[in-house]
Design a protein around this nucleic acid. Structure first.
Length: 206
DNA sequence: ACTAGGATATTT
DNA sequence: AATATCCTAGTA
């Protein structure tokens, strides 16, 4: 299990890249499922208009973003889909990483049942899909990811060198003005399990 | 292959 | 009224 120290006092863009290649595990309803993180996005409260905590904004939804690194921020997107984010950095800064896609490695049969899909490629290739596959719901908002009883946690996986990371604009933003073009989406080059809109990207980090 | 529409919690 | 999405059903 990846410890508390990993989640705090790291630059939000650095940790978004370091999360690539790590494994996200859940043990929910007695079944363990896991996948390699292959796509992330960074959200930074202080100056990022796309972030729910932009400029220190607080709402019932965004409160958990202000917790200390190592907590989960789960919110409901479009009224239906829970999206799973990892709070990073220190308390009060509201910096989170959205997990956008996984390569399934454990509990694949359970994922197929939960997702009602039979193709492995369709189990975790989107932020709303992977929460369903892993059994993550809004009840896991504010969950701690680093203690022995955690239902959701990370494990070390493979190290992804910078040359194997593609960056591009974040997905689904249209009113965040200049922020919507920031290359704060990260994914593993050549990996087939990333989420759909794969059109725009840059090699490496500008 | 591509596109339109529906599902619907939360915020402004 | 808009949104950090996904699925189905329709047309091509």
């Amino acid at each position: 299990m990846i410890p508390y120290s990993f989640y705090v006092n790291q630059d939000i863009l650095d940790i978004s890249k370091k999360l690539l290649g790590k494994r996200l595990h859940s043990k929910i309803g007695g079944v363990e499922t896991a996948g390699i993180i292959v796509e992330t996005e960074a959200y930074r409260g202080s100056d990022d208009k796309a972030c729910h905590a932009y400029g220190g904004n607080r709402s019932p939804r965004s409160l958990s973003m202000y917790k200390e690194g190592g907590h989960a921020y789960v919110y409901i997107c479009y009224g239906i889909h829970p999206l799973f984010n990892i709070v990073t950095s220190s308390k009060g800064k509201a910096e989170v990483v959205l997990i956008r896609a996984l390569q399934p490695v454990k509990g694949i049969e359970e994922m197929k049942l939960r997702r009602n899909q039979h193709k492995e490629i369709n189990l975790c290739n989107g932020p709303g899909k992977l929460t369903q596959a892993l059994g993550i719901t809004k009840l896991h908002n504010e969950a701690i990811l680093y203690n022995s009883t955690a239902e959701i946690w990370l494990e070390e996986g493979m190290n992804i060198p910078n040359d194997d990371i593609l960056t591009g604009p974040r997905v689904g933003l249209s009113t965040a003005q200049e922020c919507m073009n920031w290359p704060w989406r990260f994914r593993i080059k050549g990996n087939k399990f990333t989420s759909k809109p794969n059109t725009v990207y840059y090699e490496g980090y500008p």
